[in-house]
Nucleic acid binder design. Structure first.
Lengths: 207, 207
DNA sequence: CTGACAAGTAACAATCCGGTAACAAAAAAG
DNA sequence: CTTTTTTGTTACCGGATTGTTACTTGTCAG
């Protein structure tokens, strides 16, 4: 997993895994069924109860009934051992894409723009663009939903954390402008950060 | 599949399957790799190129390399034969849940027209038609009741949220016109958005 | 054939939305 | 505590969107 650019943690038991989930910010869980102590199905249950994180079972128990009970407890995929690494990676990527946390590739790129989410840095070609924390947050929110139009209400919530706000519309408008001034070659003719009138803004894939 | 309450079609070859896809409104494809004529991977490729329908491979070819190439062509899942019915159903359900299809279809299509309700985008063949928010709302309301005649009172309520309104009739009339100008090849000879004099309007299935 | 009414069409006007700049408040740096 | 940077607020402009009005066309009953 690390080779593919993901952060990865491992736990020796179900309990330890659940503890990790609460201390770290985790996007996906790969889980065996045969575990010391608490069994995998129970762990999956307890995960699905409290959070919406995709779970993949990876188990030597290859009976159909095992697979079925795994999927029925809400697991998102079930891979039988022995498994192929490449297949696992592909299935992980697919799941992350579905659940929208997909662009955890730590760098989001479109055209000459590059966002390194791990370091919170933005580059235009090789040059770093210095963004203020707010500007960066806004760009990341847009980047994580590349090509999707996002309304100012959602942006306000995702980037600022405000549910509603008097001048929410203005705040977004102005900060979009500030972002454009920094990331667009010509801020009045945006190429990356586009407006969909009446709907919102989107960061578009270019080229 | 039918026992589970799904509509199901089957095709004896890739070509036939692709033809079915265009004539019927399909939410998910289950595909073998070994097919007479065009092979399954090619079929999957061609599906993924033009539409965003989930594809599950179901194949006797159980080598890891087969699974990997299947997933890499963009398939959403790969099940090895022999397979268990219950597992297949569970995986189908899961996919339909992810892609949001199933309950309310995420794309409505008639003739050369396609409405992507998840992104609020409308296409004529491959070309996107830019609609204003109001135009889109109206079209979606009509599209969700394909072939049903809807009165201006209902349209007013569904699209505008007004219970009654002085110039309600006019507002609908004018916006229907605006929609037609954008979606009809010849706005004065509508093919999609038809009038039922005295009753209302409907979005008709074409072909 | 004709009048009445529904629907089509076009032009106009009000409103809403986004772009922009300048300014003020708040936060961070020195 | 002062300076600088960042963030939020306000105001105004221009244009797209939407609603309004007026007029034309088409359909159907009598």
């Amino acid at each position: 997993m690390k080779d593919e650019g993901y952060r990865a943690y491992s736990a020796g038991s179900g309990e330890e895994g659940l503890r990790l989930l609460h201390s770290e910010s985790v996007d996906l869980v790969i889980l065996d069924i045969n575990l010391p102590g608490m069994d995998g199905l129970k762990v999956c249950d307890s995960i699905k109860e409290t959070m919406q994180i995709p779970v993949i079972f990876l188990s030597a128990r290859d009976q159909d009934s095992d697979v079925i009970s795994g999927l029925e407890t809400g697991a998102d995929d079930y891979i039988r051992k022995p498994f192929n690494h490449r297949e696992l990676i592909l299935r992980v990527k697919k799941l992350l894409r579905y659940t929208g946390n997909g662009i955890h590739e730590s760098t989001i790129r479109t055209g000459r723009l590059r966002i390194r989410t791990d370091r919170e840095e933005v580059y235009f070609d090789k040059e770093e663009i210095k963004l203020t924390p707010m500007e960066y947050k806004l760009l990341e929110v847009l980047g994580r939903k590349l090509d999707w139009v996002i309304s100012w209400q959602i942006l306000l919530k995702e980037a600022w954390g405000y549910e509603d706000w008097e001048g929410g519309r203005e705040i977004v408008k102005v900060n979009i402008r500030r972002l454009r001034v920094k990331i667009e070659p010509d801020p009045s003719q945006p190429v990356y950060l586009l407006t969909e009138r009446g709907r919102g803004y989107k960061l578009a894939t270019v080229e």
